[in-house]
């Protein structure tokens, strides 16, 4: 079966906003994500992770290399790639239910069908009872659940996640990570998850792509062979199948950070 997401020798340059100097953000990145696979991209800050995501989402045009989703070259944003952003990107002027149904609304799905779908995803992310609330009435964790449900509800081929749990507190983050794992089991979505948190990447990813510092290159790929059903924090911390690859990722990432400081 062909991979859902294929990135082939992707490079990206852009002029710096203030100095106008050429910034080399990505250098010959090639990777692929299989159908239903959960992949994580880890790297030090400024390694071009977010640039990569913006290119995959179609928000940033790419000039060198190619990006294909389901065999089609990416040209601009499209509903085949759903994005969960780092900041709370749900619209403050829409209720939870209307935010979650927004993608289907844009696709022109009739209301009755939409409502049914929306309810399904509200239940999936545990927001039942909050359908008619506005985002400002929700906690940070609930906002991100809403954002997740909104992206899932539009049924994208690939879901791209840009450090979605970076802005929530540590307790909430742990819960959200386990929830996301449960949702990944339930929906079998193909996911590319960007993070700088090594534990998070190893906990969630079937495979982790480790990036070097700028210009971002794919430095290594680490597989984590833990079945999804077994990924629960309290059990995993003593599980060698988790700790070994995590330590390996940590070592690879730290090399980049320390190189930077010398």
């Amino acid at each position: 079966m062909p991979a859902k997401l294929v990135v082939d020798r992707l490079s990206h340059h852009y002029p710096d906003e203030y100095t106008g100097e050429d910034v080399h953000a990505l250098d010959q990145v090639s990777l692929s994500v299989e159908d239903g696979e959960f992949s994580a991209v880890v790297g030090p800050s400024g390694c071009g992770k977010t640039t990569l995501l913006n290119i995959l989402a179609g928000l940033l045009p790419h000039t060198e290399g190619s990006v294909q989703v389901d065999g089609k070259e990416v040209q601009g944003p499209g509903p085949d790639r759903g994005v969960v952003f780092q900041e709370h990107a749900i619209l403050p002027w829409r209720t939870v239910a209307r935010n979650i149904g927004h993608g289907l609304e844009i696709q022109g799905i009739p209301k009755s069908e939409r409502e049914q779908k929306v309810q399904e995803f509200i239940d999936l992310v545990g927001l039942s009872g909050f359908e008619e609330r506005y985002p400002h009435e929700l906690s940070g964790g609930m906002k991100q659940r809403c954002a997740l449900a909104r992206t899932l509800c539009a049924n994208p081929v690939v879901m791209l996640m840009d450090e979605p749990f970076a802005a929530v507190d540590a307790q909430t983050r742990i819960t959200l990570q386990e929830e996301l794992n449960r949702i990944a089991i339930a929906t079998r979505k193909t996911i590319l998850f960007i993070t700088h948190n090594v534990d998070e990447a190893a906990f969630l990813g079937d495979r982790c792509f480790i990036f070097s510092r700028r210009p971002g290159k794919l430095k290594a790929t680490v597989k984590i062979d833990v079945p999804r059903e077994k990924r629960i924090w309290k059990d995993l911390l003593s599980e060698k199948a988790y700790t070994d690859p995590r330590d390996e990722i940590l070592r690879l990432v730290r090399e980049e950070v320390f190189d930077d400081e010398e």
């Binding site: 179609g58 928000l59 944003p77 952003f85 749900i90 002027w93 927004h102 993608g103």
Partner: peptide
């Protein structure tokens, strides 16, 4: 209006009109 709202509607396949009516106008309200 924060750029991220516009981006999020764009990545859901929203066109220019969707962005104007669902992001710019309510955001500028």
């Amino acid at each position: 209006v924060p750029r991220v709202y516009e981006n999020s509607v764009m990545t859901m396949g929203g066109g220019r009109w969707a962005i104007i009516s669902q992001v710019y106008i309510p955001g500028a309200l």
